[in-house]
Nucleic acid binder design. Structure first.
Length: 289
DNA sequence: ACCCAGGCGGGCG
DNA sequence: CGCCCGCATGGG
């Protein structure tokens, strides 16, 4: 299929959940992304011609081919017109440049539980290590699938992690996050139904997430943005805080609350899109360091 | 050696 | 509400 404004590599590897459990490589002009799902292993390849990408998806279980295509369209929001988004978040020269340099970066739609797990692990951590920990947990506690005879592991379910020994979780390299992981897995496999949050508005859903142990303001916003695709969420990590202070407040310190308020006034219900461009543009160019 | 990483919970004033 | 602290681990 042909898609306008889609960059597979930027969308998958810019710090969203796929960056923690997929494999990405480039082969000449073609980009190839592989990740495990309930359907089996999904492979997405894309080649760009100008602002249009030719996208092909496949599944190791060939009879799920149509389902794999739907999965890819939904995960990368390929039916969303990015030019509308750009028109609404392009409020200043910094954002204009970010949009221009990161053209085709899309906010992805991920499984809520997988997003919870990834971002509980993300706290006080770096992307490379998050990848390692998610991989170790998947290997230790995730269901094994064998596409084409090759072994892969799904991300572990809440029940699998809830019944795991704390020390076995710790051995996956989680550090002090072992308790958060086990406890949030217990909550999500018993009294908490993450599926209910789809129907709640942003503020109500955030309140529910904040009630879970190990989920604070920033992680809750990541889950709402990447797991439920509530585009008004504006996760504020160290990068976003620094970049916003540098680019929008002349380098003066601002509180998390002030930055939330600033983003809401400026980008409204598309704050999450602006956030992803700020975050990745800031990282690539080390803005504020 | 030191510093940092897509922060959070708990305790304090 | 804001501020401060400890927290595990690996890479620059």
């Amino acid at each position: 299929m042909e898609v306008k404004d889609f960059d597979l590599g930027l969308s998958a590897m810019s710090g969203q959940p796929l960056a923690f459990y997929s494999d990405y490589r480039r082969s000449g002009a073609t980009e190839i992304l592989t990740y495990p799902t309930q359907l089996g292993r999904i492979t997405v390849s894309a080649s760009k011609r100008g602002c249009v990408s030719s996208v092909r998806s496949s599944c190791s279980e060939s009879h799920y081919k149509a389902a794999a295509e739907r999965e890819v369209v939904e995960r990368f929001a390929l039916d969303e017109d990015l030019s509308d988004v750009y028109a609404r978040i392009d409020t200043d020269p910094f954002m204009s440049q970010a949009i221009s340099e990161l053209s085709g970066l899309r906010v992805t739609k991920n499984d809520p539980w997988e997003t919870v797990l990834c971002f509980v692990i993300s706290q006080f951590n770096n992307i490379k290590r998050i990848r390692g920990i998610v991989g170790n947990l998947s290997k230790a506690f995730g269901e094994e699938i064998r596409p084409d005879g090759e072994t892969m592991h799904l991300i572990p379910t809440p029940a699998a992690l809830a019944s795991a020994d704390l020390s076995a979780i710790r051995r996956c390299g989680t550090g002090f996050r072992d308790r958060y992981i086990k406890r949030v897995a217990e909550e999500c496999s018993t009294r908490v139904d993450l599926g209910e949050l789809y129907d709640l508005d942003y503020a109500e859903a955030k309140e529910r997430l904040l009630a879970l142990h190990g989920i604070g303001d920033k992680v809750a916003d990541c889950i709402l943005l990447f797991g439920y695709r509530k585009l008004e969420a504006f996760p504020i990590d160290t990068w976003v805080k620094r970049v916003v202070e540098t680019k929008y407040f002349k380098g003066r310190k601002r509180s998390i609350r002030q930055i939330h308020s600033f983003a809401e006034r400026r980008w409204g219900d598309l704050s999450g899109y602006a956030n992803q461009y700020i975050f990745y543009q800031g990282r690539l160019n080390k803005i504020g360091t």
